[in-house]
């Protein structure tokens, strides 16, 4: 576990072969690879939830169906909020790699706020459904729906807490190798949640609309 001061870049990104800051301490590349693999496991976790949803989608037990339930404007707004936050998250990493602390903090905060708006909107949507009698306990379809979408929402909520913790550290210690690594990793997480959402959008909401 000796510190590697300067690593030889092989597949490094854009800036002329030098590795970005987040790869420079010895634990940087380890954590980043570890996190990618974590994302791969999370893919399978969501796959299991999606599989359950597809199997139980038509098991509505006389209750509301997906077509009756989903409102296009609601999930479209959620989608745009999340896509935009993914974009601002990428801008944060860009600012970080340019060593611009102010912009980094700014974009992270914007991302965070968009995330909060997303979760708020989703909660609102859920409460609406519940008010119409479409609760988790109503049918297998609804159990699967709330669990799949809710698991994603819980991931986003966790991401918000995590990102807030990193914002505090950047404000305190600036952009160093440790913070760069943390920011890069949380941004991976955030984009990943966007990817999952794209599939929720497509195979949950749009499938409901189309069917």
């Amino acid at each position: 576990m000796t510190t590697v001061a300067e690593k030889r870049p092989t597949n490094a990104g854009h800036d002329g072969g030098r590795l970005p800051l987040e790869y420079t301490r010895h634990e940087g590349p380890l954590n980043i690879l570890g996190f990618w693999i974590f994302l791969a496991t999370d893919v399978v976790l969501f796959a299991s939830l999606f599989a359950t949803y597809f199997v139980l989608r038509t098991h509505v037990d006389g209750g509301p169906t997906d077509k009756e339930l989903f409102g296009i404007s609601g999930f479209t707004i959620e989608t745009v909020l999340l896509l935009t936050s993914s974009f601002t998250g990428s801008l944060a990493v860009y600012a970080m790699r340019n060593g611009n602390k102010k912009r980094l903090l700014g974009w992270l905060i914007v991302t965070l706020l968009l995330g909060i708006a997303f979760v708020g909107y989703e909660l609102h949507e859920f409460l609406d459904y519940a008010a119409e009698g479409a609760t988790m306990q109503r049918s297998a379809f609804l159990s699967a729906f709330f669990t799949l979408v809710g698991t994603h929402g819980a991931h986003v909520t966790f991401g918000i807490i995590w990102m807030a913790s990193i914002i505090v550290q950047i404000a305190r210690y600036g952009i160093d190798a440790i913070n760069a690594r943390k920011t890069f990793i949380v941004s991976l997480y955030w984009h990943f949640l966007d990817i999952i959402w794209i599939f929720i959008f497509t195979t949950v909401y749009m499938m409901g609309v189309v069917s």
Partner: peptide
């Protein structure tokens, strides 16, 4: 987790009622 939801929160993933499988 899903079986636990059935037991703790009354969902219907695997029950014999309300469309569970």
């Amino acid at each position: 987790a899903l079986l636990m939801f059935d037991r703790l929160f009354g969902t219907h993933f695997f029950t014999m009622l309300h469309g569970g499988n």
